[in-house]
Amino acid sequence: MKAPALEQRKLLDLQAADNRIAQLQHTLRTLPQEVRLAELQRDSVAARQEFGGVNGELEDARAEIARVEADIDTVAAREKRDRERLQASSSSKDIQGLEHELASLKVRRSNLEDIELAVMERVEEIEQRLAAITARRDDIATEERLLAAQRDEQRDRVAAQLEVAKSERSAIAGGIGAELLALYERQRERYGVGAALLQGGVSLGTNVALTESDLAQIRAAAPDEVVLDPDGACILVRTEESGL
């Protein structure tokens, strides 16, 4: 294949543009905030699950307090009733029975009040744990929002740079003949590099020094002859730096 030497040199600009595009695309795929956001998402899920479990403990403890308070109210009502009956009774047998029941109710009420106090202390401890979980969950959400905003800002900035790079690439490709461009695209698709400079006898496509035999063949080629790296990896572009 033949192509003007100046057109072949444009392949280096095209390769540089493709390298820039690949770099920007890689940046978009590996934004640094994404790793931390994934960690925060896992932390957020764990915090929500922990919140749900502790909140369930709190609801159970508050329900237990309500039951104990209802029992205390029941005992207090029976005490009130028995006192009223005691005041109105003239039967020593009834008085003895009422006094015995009142003593039992007093013990029962004291036990219930102890239980209530213990459960109230447990509620306080659970509320403290729940407050700590809530604070941690809020901190996670705040960091997520900040990081997401930073990520979106960087993504938009890189995406804009990518669009510019693609536009510049199109302009460069427009100045290269269809046949040469097709060869470049084919080599780049196969090997990742479409064209590279031959510099000081070294192919910058493979970073391998060419043999004297290979260099002799390249020297013998006309300036408009398109030559490939001896390994076939890419188009070799010859300039005054080639050492020929």
Rank of each mutant, 00 (worst) to 15 (best):
M1A: 14
M1S: 15
K2P: 02
A3T: 02
E7A: 09
K10W: 03
L11D: 10
L11S: 04
L12C: 08
L12V: 07
D13F: 02
L14I: 07
A17P: 09
A22N: 10
T27L: 15
L28M: 08
R29W: 03
R29E: 14
E34N: 12
V35D: 04
R36W: 00
R36C: 11
R42N: 08
D43A: 14
A47V: 08
R48V: 03
R48C: 01
E50T: 11
G53R: 13
G53P: 11
N55D: 08
G56E: 12
G56A: 14
E59N: 12
D60C: 11
A63D: 05
E64F: 09
E64R: 13
I65S: 13
R67Q: 06
E69C: 07
T74A: 15
V75F: 08
A77D: 15
R78A: 11
E79F: 09
E79S: 05
R83I: 00
R83T: 09
E84F: 08
E84T: 04
E84S: 10
L86D: 01
L86V: 04
Q87G: 14
S92H: 04
S92T: 05
S92Y: 11
I95A: 08
G97S: 12
G97R: 10
E99V: 12
L102F: 03
V107M: 14
R108M: 06
N111M: 04
E113W: 07
I115N: 13
E116H: 13
M120T: 13
R122K: 04
R122A: 09
V123A: 05
V123Q: 10
E125F: 06
E127M: 08
R129A: 09
L130P: 04
A131I: 04
A131R: 11
I133Y: 07
T134Q: 06
T134W: 06
T134R: 10
A135S: 15
A135V: 14
R137F: 08
R137Q: 10
D138W: 00
I140K: 06
E144Q: 14
E144W: 01
R145N: 15
R151V: 03
R151S: 00
D152W: 03
D156A: 15
R157C: 00
R157W: 05
V158W: 06
A159I: 07
A160F: 01
L162Q: 02
L162S: 09
V164F: 00
K166V: 01
S167Y: 12
S167M: 10
E168P: 01
E168T: 02
S170R: 13
S170P: 11
I172G: 05
I172K: 06
A173S: 02
I176A: 08
A178R: 15
A178D: 15
A178H: 15
L181Q: 02
L183G: 01
R188Y: 08
E189A: 12
R190F: 02
Y191W: 08
Y191C: 05
A196T: 06
A196Q: 05
L197V: 02
L198G: 03
Q199G: 01
Q199N: 14
A209L: 04
S213C: 02
R219H: 11
R219C: 00
A220M: 11
A221E: 00
A221N: 12
A222V: 02
E225K: 12
V226P: 11
V227N: 07
V227D: 07
D229P: 09
D231T: 15
G232D: 02
A233C: 07
C234K: 06
V237F: 01
V237Q: 05
R238K: 10
T239D: 03
E240K: 15
G243N: 03
L244W: 10
